[in-house]
Amino acid sequence: MHLIDSYLAAYQFREMHALDVPTDPPSAMAAILAHRPEDVRLFRYAIKLRELPMRLLGQSQSQSHRTGQSASFGLDNFTLLQRNGDAEIAYGLAGKLWKADYGQVFIADAEAFEAFNEPGNVKLAINFTCNSLQPGLTRVTTQTRVQCIDADALRSFTAYWYLIRPVSGLIRRRMLKAIARRCAAGALKSTSGDHTDDLI
C-alpha cells in the first residue's frame, strides 16, 4: 500500500502521471527532493496568472500572514506527510483552494492533515513514487488526490478542477521531465539558481 492510500484513501478527484527515468530509485528520489515546482517555468507563469486577481486586490500580504507561507504558491505551501525511503514521498494541503487567495488552512503535520475535517474545505494529497523496473531504470509516478469534505466543497471544487486540470496535467509532466533531466545530468543540487526547465 502506498503512503497516499494511508492519508487520502477516499477522494473524488485524481490525476496521475508517470515517466520512466534511466536511473536507480535512490537517485530518482534525490532528484525529486531537490526539485521544486517553482523551477518549472510553466508553473511560475500559471501561478502568476492564477494569483493576478489576488495581487490586484492586494491580498497577498493577508495570505502570507494567515498561512505563514510565502505569498506566491509553491512547495512551501505543502506539508510533508511522510517519506518511505527511496520508494515514496507524500505531501498534503487543505483549504478552499478555488478561492483567489487559495483559502489555505495551515496544516502543521501529518497528524493534523489526517484529523482535518472542516466543512466547506478540501484535502489534497500528492505523492511521488520510485519503482525499479530493471537495473538502471526507474518509473517515477506522481499522483494527486482531492477529497471534498462535504457537498458544498464538492460543488465549489468541481468547476475549479475542470478549469485547471489541463494546465495541471501539463505542469506535472514538465515536472517529471525536469526530474529526469536532473537525474541524467547528475545535478542534485539546490535549485535556487538552477532553472533546469529553461531547457525544456
Results as ranks from 00 to 15, higher is better:
residue 151 A to H: 10
residue 121 N to K: 12
residue 82 Q to E: 15
residue 96 K to D: 08
residue 82 Q to Y: 07
residue 129 T to W: 04
residue 134 Q to G: 06
residue 109 D to I: 10
residue 139 R to V: 09
residue 103 G to H: 05
residue 126 I to W: 04
residue 132 S to D: 08
residue 84 N to V: 10
residue 88 E to S: 07
residue 97 L to Y: 04
residue 115 A to K: 13
residue 121 N to C: 15
residue 115 A to L: 08
residue 135 P to I: 06
residue 124 L to I: 13
residue 146 V to S: 01
residue 81 L to K: 04
residue 148 C to F: 11
residue 83 R to S: 14
residue 85 G to P: 08
residue 85 G to E: 01
residue 81 L to D: 01
residue 153 A to S: 15
residue 156 S to E: 11
residue 148 C to K: 02
residue 130 C to D: 01
residue 143 Q to T: 14
residue 115 A to C: 04
residue 134 Q to L: 13
residue 89 I to N: 01
residue 135 P to H: 10
residue 101 D to Y: 05
residue 98 W to I: 09
residue 81 L to T: 07
residue 108 A to F: 08
residue 143 Q to I: 09
residue 131 N to R: 14
residue 116 F to L: 12
residue 145 R to E: 03
residue 118 E to H: 04
residue 156 S to Q: 13
residue 109 D to N: 14
residue 100 A to I: 15
residue 120 G to E: 00
residue 140 V to R: 00
residue 139 R to L: 07
residue 147 Q to M: 13
residue 146 V to W: 11
residue 114 E to A: 13
residue 92 G to I: 08
residue 137 L to D: 04
residue 102 Y to T: 05
residue 80 L to H: 11
residue 81 L to G: 00
residue 112 A to Q: 05
residue 97 L to D: 00
residue 99 K to T: 10
residue 147 Q to W: 13
residue 85 G to S: 02
residue 113 F to Y: 13
residue 92 G to Q: 01
residue 149 I to T: 08
residue 99 K to V: 05
residue 104 Q to L: 14
residue 106 F to M: 11
residue 129 T to Q: 12
residue 126 I to K: 02
residue 96 K to Y: 05
residue 95 G to W: 07
residue 111 E to Y: 08
residue 145 R to W: 12
residue 81 L to N: 01
residue 88 E to R: 14
residue 79 T to D: 01
residue 97 L to A: 03
residue 121 N to D: 12
residue 128 F to E: 00
residue 120 G to S: 05
residue 156 S to V: 09
residue 83 R to D: 05
residue 147 Q to A: 13
residue 97 L to W: 06
residue 138 T to N: 03
residue 93 L to R: 05
residue 132 S to I: 07
residue 141 T to G: 11
residue 129 T to R: 14
residue 133 L to D: 07
residue 136 G to T: 11
residue 117 N to H: 15
residue 127 N to V: 00
